[in-house]
C-alpha cells in the first residue's frame, strides 16, 4: 500500500502512509489513539475509500477497485475490534458461513458441507477450543470465546492475509497467552497484521512492528529497535516503558 491518504471532514486520518507486508509475515501495528490503525484496516478491506494512494494485494489485485466482499473472496480476512459474530446462529453455523465456498445465492440454496469441509470445520474447532460449544448460540459465548470464534471464522475463509484488530481486548491472561500462540502458529501460512494496544502481547508475538502516528509511519523494525527510537518514546512508548 503506497502513499495512502484518507481525510474525514478535513481531519487527516491517514497521511501519505506507505506500508509493505510480505507473504507469511506477522506484523504488529501499534500507535496511540487516533493514529489511524482502524482506518488503515478499513482501507485495505474496502470499507473506506482513500482520497489518494493505492492498495495492492499481491502483484495483481487492486483493492481500490473491488467491493468489500470481493476483497474478502480474494483472501483477506478481517476481525473487528468489537467481536462480531452472528449471535442468533450456533457456533457451528457461524463457522460454516465463513467457510471458503461459492458465496453466491444459487450456491447457498443447495449448499451442504462436504466431508472435506467438515474435516476443516473440525480442525478449526479444535484449534479455537470450542468443540464442546458446537451447537450453542454464538450470542451465549463469553467475550473471549467470541473473539476466538471470530478468529476461527477468519481461518475458515482460508485467507492469504488476516487483519486482526485488537484480538486480546477483554481476554483473561490465560486466553491472551493462547491467542499469542495461535497467531504465532498462523504466521508463515498466512500473512497476519495485528493491531493491538497490549504491549506485553505485542512483545510476545511481534517480529516486526510498525508504529503509526497521526496517520503516517513513525518507525518500523523489531520491537527492541522501535522501543529504542527516541521519537517513538516521545509520542507513545515513553509513557508506557519509562
Amino acid at each position: 500500500m503506497e502513499s495512502v491518504s484518507v481525510s474525514f471532514d478535513g481531519f487527516k486520518a491517514l497521511n501519505e502512509l506507505s506500508l509493505y507486508v510480505d507473504e507469511g509475515e506477522l506484523r504488529c501495528i501499534i500507535g496511540p489513539n487516533g493514529a489511524g490503525k482502524s482506518t488503515l484496516m478499513d482501507v485495505i478491506t474496502g470499507k473506506t475509500r482513500p482520497d489518494t494512494g493505492s492498495v495492492w494485494f499481491g502483484q495483481t489485485l487492486d483493492c481500490l477497485r473491488l467491493e468489500p466482499w470481493e476483497i474478502a473472496a480474494c483472501g483477506i480476512g478481517r476481525k473487528f475490534q468489537k467481536p462480531t459474530v452472528f449471535e442468533q446462529l450456533t457456533v457451528f453455523e457461524n463457522l460454516e458461513m465463513a467457510m471458503q465456498a461459492d458465496k453466491r445465492v444459487r450456491a447457498s440454496l443447495l449448499a451442504q458441507p462436504t466431508p472435506v469441509q467438515r474435516q476443516q470445520l473440525d480442525e478449526v474447532f479444535t484449534l479455537i477450543g470450542l468443540t464442546t460449544a458446537r451447537d450453542r448460540l454464538a450470542g451465549l459465548l463469553s467475550h473471549g470465546q467470541k473473539q476466538w470464534l471470530e478468529i476461527g471464522m477468519l481461518l475458515m475463509q482460508n485467507p492469504r492475509m488476516l487483519l486482526v484488530d485488537e484480538p486480546v481486548a477483554g481476554m483473561t491472561p490465560g486466553e491472551v497467552e493462547r491467542t499469542a500462540e495461535l497467531l504465532n502458529a498462523l504466521a508463515g501460512k498466512h500473512a497476519v497484521i495485528v493491531v493491538e494496544h497490549d504491549m506485553a502481547f505485542v512483545r510476545a508475538i511481534a517480529r516486526k512492528v510498525t508504529v503509526l502516528h497521526q496517520g503516517s509511519v513513525l518507525a518500523e523494525g523489531s520491537m527492541d529497535q522501535v522501543q529504542a527510537d527516541p521519537r517513538v518514546q516521545e509520542v507513545y512508548l515513553g509513557q508506557v516503558v519509562a
Binding site: T45, P68, W69, A72, T84, F86, Q88, A98, K103, Q157
Partner: peptide, 12 residues
C-alpha cells in the same frame, strides 16, 4: 444481525 461481518466474509 451483522451485515458488515457478512460482507467481510465474502458475501454480497
Amino acid at each position: 444481525d451483522a451485515e458488515t461481518r457478512l460482507m467481510f466474509l465474502g458475501y454480497n
